[in-house]
């Protein structure tokens, strides 16, 4: 029991560290993209009054990565936002590993269910 408590504490510290660096990394990427975006498009007009949806290249993971590599400012921001979305998901994957190490199989199962729901959302959005 005492051993369990120790691992729970370790897991909590690891989760905290992961969340912190995830948010910081994301904010850093978003800011770089943001500065480039303002330099390039700063004197144009914003239009958000009517919804037209984002172009396909800012929705698809592959093209976001590709465009970000080519220093497209909006794709860099989008990449930062993806890092942010991935942060809580990474926390869940860490929890699965943690609960396996703790041999708490009930919670391995519970955590895997949560992970499945999120991955379903990420990869079936185009179907829905």
């Amino acid at each position: 029991m005492k051993q369990d408590k120790l691992t729970d504490k370790n897991l909590e510290v690891m989760m905290g560290t992961l969340l912190r660096y995830g948010v910081l990394l994301s904010a850093f990427i978003v800011m770089i993209g943001g500065i480039l975006y303002l330099i390039k498009f700063g004197n144009q007009q914003p239009h958000y009054t009517h919804f037209s949806g984002e172009p396909a290249n800012l929705i698809n993971l592959k093209s976001i990565l590709n465009d970000a590599k080519g220093f497209h400012s909006r794709a860099i921001i989008q990449l930062g936002l993806l890092v942010l979305i991935a942060t809580p998901i990474a926390r869940i994957i860490l929890s699965v590993v943690g609960f396996i190490l703790e041999k708490d199989y009930l919670y391995v199962l519970i955590t895997l269910i949560v992970l499945t729901v999120i991955l379903f959302s990420l990869f079936s959005g185009s179907v829905a």
Binding site: Y37, I59, Q78, I118
Partner: peptide
């Protein structure tokens, strides 16, 4: 965070998440 990430996937694919607006 986890709850919002679950719906963020659906919204991203539907084109609701705009980089120029989300950044600030």
């Amino acid at each position: 965070g986890v709850t919002a990430a679950a719906s963020a996937g659906v919204y991203l694919e539907r084109g609701y998440i705009d980089p120029g607006l989300s950044m600030p």
